[in-house]
Nucleic acid binder design. Sequence first.
RNA 1: GCGGGUGUAGCUCAGUGGUAGAGCGUCACGUUGCCAACGUGACUGUCGUCGGUUCGAAUCCGAUCACCCGCUCCA
Length: 514
Amino acid sequence: MTMKPNDYHVSMDALSSLCKRRGFIFQTSEIYGGINGFWDYGPLGVELKRNIKESWWKSVVQTRENVVGLDSSIIMHPRVWEASGHIGNFKDPMVDCRETKSRYRADQILVFKHKSNAATLMFAYPEDEAPPAKKVKKIGKQRADDYETVPLMDIPVENYDRLVGPDTNEAGTLTEPRAFNLMFKTFVGPLEESANVAYLRPETAQGIFAQFGNVLATARQKMPFGIAQIGKAFRNEINPRNYTFRSREFEQMELEFFIQPGTDAEWHEYWVAERLSWYGKVGLPEGRMHRDIHEGDALAHYASACTDIMYDFPFGTQELEGIAARGNFDLTQHQKTSGKGLEYFDEETKEKYLPHVIEPSAGVDRIALALLCEAYRVEWIPKGKEGGEVVTADPDARQAPEGYEARTVLRFAPCIAPYKVAVFPLLKNKPELVAKAREVFDRLNERWTCFYDQAGAIGRRYRRQDEIGTPLGITIDFDTLEDDTVTVRDRDTMEQIRMPISELENYIAERVRF
RNA sequence: GCGGGUGUAGCUCAGUGGUAGAGCGUCACGUUGCCAACGUGACUGUCGUCGGUUCGAAUCCGAUCACCCGCUCCA
């Protein structure tokens, strides 16, 4: 039997409904009405996330001699954020120019406007420059003598439509001033004083840079080598949206891979390829994955390359991971701000340098969401026992066509499925079957997450497991009592094979391997 | 942030001023020899929250919160 590819997009309503119903994802503190941008993972969701993180850790850290792990604290010294540029650039109200994409501090911008308050054009300019008298003449067709200077903050936002930005000749391109500090602020110690202000980290990366010296001194690593970290990060997003995609509290998996300066391009390419291969293994097909290569203006000023790994979500193609070549921007900043030397002495070349870094930075929650979107199918299967082709349901159709019935299934890659195996006695009122099933369950449960179920008809139990993505179902029947064989039912094909209990562990190990 | 929409049982939803409902699900018992069977019974609600109008509000009004859609935004 051939399966059609998942060539349609699940509706996010249907997905979030299933996630709630089956215990993957809940709204945080739901009984109090929830909070925008925060989500909880239920019993199945937490297993899914653990599998994603463990798979990443294994692939990036444990199977590599030259990558080590770190678990840094969420609250760090505030000067970390000064060094990284997270404080300073973003604590003041900013205005953006929609046309030139420039960003200005609103309190450093002045406005040249007509003294009479007439509805003529107004001209914004930086406070350290002279008023733009020429623009008044050329674009505004007015006399500069009739104009006066006022702070930008005094201009009502509703008049921005006749405000010309500093680097443009067109009116109405400036956004209203907005505070851009997206870091959560808190206080260390019981006194809420400004001296005690601290921040929840907006990324895990800076913990790695701040401990670069200690790891270098203790881990006996030589260039190139990496430091990896998985942990929570917090951003006070203006507008969380798309289910769990943009949350205010989220989990990152970040690697800082330190390299000799000049080898940036090759290592960047290497990690893009490594990471794409990992996405394939956890179940995101090539056809749904894209690289977004940042160039020119889209590149941060310190980066020499950045490739985003994108996935086709139902709500659009969105970033799962960014892989940036950040040069030595961060180590330079921390060295400067802390006054502590962070240079590396290369015994081979007898050179001392600040290593460059390649940073693959992935969002665990986004990957979990992508895996759920990808895995979710409603299939129409022929009624009756045998034959007929399974088709992927039209997502807009409300009912299966005549002769078919709907089946909801999460086709997770087995390595990330919350439960690997479900074990069923064929009938619950036959003590011999139940006893044997418990015996098989206990044995398998030592190695894998297993689910035992004896409630209801066997077909119903299979379907329940389909809906939570359990790849294998094992049924103990009367033949088992005779010859110690069981049926193993495949989630995707719904086909069954008969197998001795003694072979089960090898078979499962092979099927669920990463 | 702006505009529109929606909030009733775990899920999907009906209920337009007069005693809170259905299907599915969940659980128990019985039945059941492999793909959402059946029977009986049980569970679940401050009708998102707060306030107002009214003799009386799930229903009308206001505010607020959350979610969805479209813009916007996303170092």
